[in-house]
Design a protein around this nucleic acid. Structure first.
Lengths: 335, 335
DNA sequence: ATTGGCACGTTAAGCGTTTAACTATAGAAT
DNA sequence: ATTCTATAGTTAAACGCTTAACGTGCCAAT
């Protein structure tokens, strides 16, 4: 592999000159520039990034952290969409993405992850940070590495989806159809900050509509399809008066639809169902699911933008992405 | 940040000693080892990976390359599953993953990608390499970087799913139900190597069953749901005798089901439908889709294992992962 | 008593960049 | 003629680590 040295020798200048020409420092004659460029071309020179990182202290790598927790991160389509947003922004800025999926536990010691963050290998960190029990960004903060969180962890820089409005829109939609007896399928609130906020939104909409939130029947699942199925069974047998089910993610909503049909009922004419996330499958199941789109790619893009802002020395403001109600066919007026 | 130097000073030894103790080189008294470890602990020392990479020539980073082509890579759930396999294997080996999604074109010049590969930053490359028009691994080969392909590109090291068998199993399944008039929904063969192989498998099964493959009605889509819908309309109106549709991916199969219902027919009692990929949605659509599972995580894992084998100086054999027919409810005996 | 070999450490030379500090030249200003 | 300034380029010292080569005791074997 050709080095700076080789290029310098070939071009008949010093290594410093080559380096400066390549990094576009001013004060060079066109002749010198051309000589250097020609040598670079002839030797097929590519700078060694490790050396550059060591010397300059900038690796041009940012770590994308998807904590590997109880929920399999690799099964969630949203993850990929967020990644897409981060990628597209980073690529424009000439940054590379290092993917890390640490196994976070209460005592927060995934040594590999710790070491990666502290190693000087990454210029910044973007993390999905939504678990109340633990923050993925703690190692970054400890080492003063620029970091942005996607989620609700209290930190200087973060990007989040407006889960409150999402929950609110969902219930408002059902109420607008005339539903009053609405069941909720959620997950235990401690597991996920965003869930807490979605439920607050639901509560706000309930208050607004004169529905007693605390009296609304509720069953918790674990985000999986099967759990939505099961929760629906419990809910509908114990509360036959229900005309609608509000599910806090699409997979559980699909489980709900499945169970409703098993019970010989129809969606939406007997029971309306709404979900959350707008995963690809939501549009193609039968009936197509009314749900909330959280604009995952934009979320990722905003996080990346924010990180670059920080790296540029600015102090960006917190970003909250609006959610969009996607009206399809799984919710309608009650009989 | 503490450096080797600081640790050495604190422990009262030379930097070389510290380095060797940390890398577990033999020949050290327990006293020395303890002194060094204590100093490391006290200073919270973490090796600087850039320096290590520069000095040793090994970055402990491997590039995962998902070429960004006509099909949006970020929408394909399989990608995430493959990534999962690569990740789990790499994490065990202490390697980090650098994600690259180069925009490959005929003249193969995504400068960023080229530069990344040639930069000495990555010890090896794993790429999704399935496009006849261009190989994502060409830059790696040029620079003699260890590389493994996931796909059919002719290269020394590769891992692939047994698409031939997948296609074969699918048609065999339909034939076993007694279907003879079967339509094919595919994509233009030039777009994807694996499609070619799936179709060869279909042909083999057709031959075996005494069906004239070349006479089987066929329509091509673009992997998307809408295209499956459209292809189905064409196929069923031109060939009303068809009793089954073999689709080369699940999304087109879902489009097919949609269209069949729109035409007032039932799946599977009027028309059987089978897909390919076993995406998560396949299990939850109605009716649940009979399809082929290609074990994406295992594919990724195998690719990573192979790369590490190469890095260890071995010459691993090509790997072909078996496919599994997942029987659900979208295919049944014809009326 | 000498030799040899092993165990335990150290010295110092890189690895390929960046960059502060410096030199040199030429033209402009005094 | 002298000084100053801006431009053009060089020198050499980092950056933090690995590793080949080289001591230096110490003990067993001759």
């Amino acid at each position: 592999m050709a080095t700076l040295h080789d290029v310098a020798k070939r071009a008949g200048v010093s290594t410093a000159t080559v380096s400066k020409v390549l990094s576009n420092t001013p004060y060079f004659t066109d002749t010198t520039r051309d000589k250097v460029m020609a040598a670079v071309e002839e030797l097929g020179y590519t700078p060694n990034l490790a050396a550059r990182a060591l010397s300059s202290g900038k690796s041009h790598i940012i770590a994308v952290v998807f904590p590997y927790v109880f929920e399999a991160i690799f099964e969630d389509p949203l993850v990929l969409r967020i990644l897409e947003g981060i990628e597209s922004e980073s690529r424009e800025r000439g940054y590379n993405l290092l993917l890390s999926t640490p196994r976070l536990t209460k005592d927060n010691a995934d040594p590999h992850y710790q070491q990666l963050i502290a190693s000087g290998y990454v210029d910044g960190v973007i993390a999905l940070d939504n678990l109340p029990s633990i923050s993925a960004l703690e190692p970054a903060h400890k080492r003063k590495i620029p970091a942005v969180a996607i989620g609700y962890h209290e930190t200087d820089y973060c990007v989040r989806s407006d889960d409150f409005s999402g929950g609110q829109q969902l219930l408002q939609h059902l109420v607008a159809f005339g539903h009053r007896d609405i069941g909720i399928i959620a997950v235990p609130e401690e597991t996920h900050f965003s869930i807490t906020h979605r439920l607050r939104g639901v509560r706000a909409a309930a208050d607004e509509a004169g529905i007693d939130y605390d009296a609304m029947p509720r069953a918790d699942g674990d985000f999986g399809i099967a759990s939505g199925d099961k929760a629906t069974k419990t809910l509908l047998t114990e509360h036959p008066e229900l005309t609608a089910l509000l599910c806090l993610n699409d997979r559980m909503a699909m489980g709900a639809i499945q169970q409703i049909r098993n019970m010989g009922l129809d969606v939406p004419s007997d029971i309306s169902v709404v979900g959350y996330d707008d995963i690809p499958a939501a549009a193609i199941v039968a009936p197509p699911l009314t749900t909330i789109n959280q604009q995952a790619p934009e979320l990722g893009r905003a996080a990346a933008k924010m990180l670059f802002d920080i790296l540029d020395g600015h102090k960006p403001e917190r970003v909250e992405m609006p959610t969009h109600l996607i009206v399809r066919e799984s919710a309608a007026a009650p009989r």
